[in-house]
Computed example of a mutant assay.
Amino acid sequence: MEFRGLTGGIYRLTEWIMRLSGTNLLWVLCSAPFLFILYLRLAIDPQYVNEALTLNWALGILAPVTLFPATSALFTVVRKWVMGDPDVKIMRTFFRGYKENYKQSLVGGLFYTVLFVVMYVDITVYMVQFPNLQLFGILMLILMILLFVSLFNFFSMVAHYHMKIGGILKNAILLTLLRPFRVFSTLIGAIAILYIGWQMPVLYVICAVSVMAWFAFFNFYATFLKMQEQAKKREEAQNSDEESELIELGKEKKEK
């Protein structure tokens, strides 16, 4: 019995690793142009300023077109896992999510990319060229971190809701501000995964991004369920108050 249980556990673990690896590989393939330019940007010597600037522009152009749709598709798959459907067909679900959410991912990617570029330039200017205004640079850095954290909610909402892009962007940022504990626990988990991946880069290809997406959607879905429960309680309380008012009105009418 113990041997059979151990064998079953190993089989389930192997199955999950295969799922994570398969989804991660699809994400890498669909994000390949962005990832290739990112690799060149990280590898380039800092003295080649013009080349670095050109690569920065290429990253800004490729991110909304490739990275954002691929990540939305990744979240479409992990959403199924978190919601209790581990046997979902990975390739079909991934590319369906890629196709259905492409427009929203593209527009959202343009929005985030422009904001990141503006904030990056502001931080560089304030921190390097105007030392007396470094406080503004620090403030802008904090805003950039908040914007980055809201990306987890953005991708989760794109995968989970049928909502216009304006509503998704607004609610992704609001949820980041209103529910900071869950979101920043996701950030800490993401930093830990990135650090482990930095030590073993092969994990980025095998499973690191899929694990990060799963953890991010898990936290998002827990927040979603909690908010749904609170809304249900408020609705029940409101209905109870209305029933009490009707009872009181009934009493008053009877007395008259």
Rank of each mutant, 00 (worst) to 15 (best):
E2H: 13
T7D: 12
G8D: 06
G8H: 06
I10P: 06
Y11T: 13
T14F: 10
M18S: 14
R19W: 07
G22M: 14
N24G: 03
L26F: 06
W27K: 05
V28S: 10
C30Y: 07
A32P: 09
P33H: 05
F34N: 02
F34G: 03
L35N: 04
F36A: 15
I37H: 05
L38H: 01
Y39C: 09
A43P: 00
I44R: 00
D45T: 01
Y48I: 00
N50E: 15
N50D: 10
E51S: 00
L53K: 00
L59H: 00
I61Y: 08
A63Q: 06
T66A: 14
L67W: 09
F68Y: 13
S72G: 13
K80H: 14
W81L: 12
V82H: 01
M83F: 04
M83L: 15
I90P: 07
M91T: 15
R92Q: 15
T93G: 08
Y98A: 12
K99E: 12
K99H: 13
E100N: 12
K103D: 08
K103M: 07
G109D: 01
L110K: 04
F111Y: 09
Y112T: 05
T113N: 11
T113P: 05
L115G: 10
F116K: 06
F116M: 15
V118R: 03
V118L: 12
Y120F: 13
I123C: 08
T124A: 14
Y126E: 09
F130G: 04
Q134D: 02
F136N: 07
I138Y: 06
I138T: 02
I138F: 06
I145E: 03
V149L: 04
S150N: 05
L151G: 12
H160N: 15
Y161C: 01
Y161M: 04
M163I: 02
I173W: 01
L178G: 08
L178I: 12
L178Q: 11
R179I: 09
P180C: 01
R182A: 14
S185N: 11
G189D: 09
G189R: 08
A190C: 10
A192T: 02
I193M: 04
L194R: 10
Y195E: 08
Y195K: 05
I196P: 06
G197Y: 02
W198Y: 12
Q199W: 13
P201L: 12
P201D: 10
V202H: 01
V202C: 03
A208G: 11
M212L: 15
W214K: 10
W214L: 15
A216C: 08
N219Q: 13
N219K: 13
F220G: 00
A222R: 11
A222E: 14
T223Y: 04
L225N: 13
K226I: 05
M227C: 07
Q230K: 11
Q230T: 09
R234I: 12
E235P: 06
A237F: 10
A237M: 14
N239T: 04
S240V: 08
E243G: 03
E245K: 11
L246W: 08
L246H: 11
I247R: 10
K253T: 08
K256D: 11
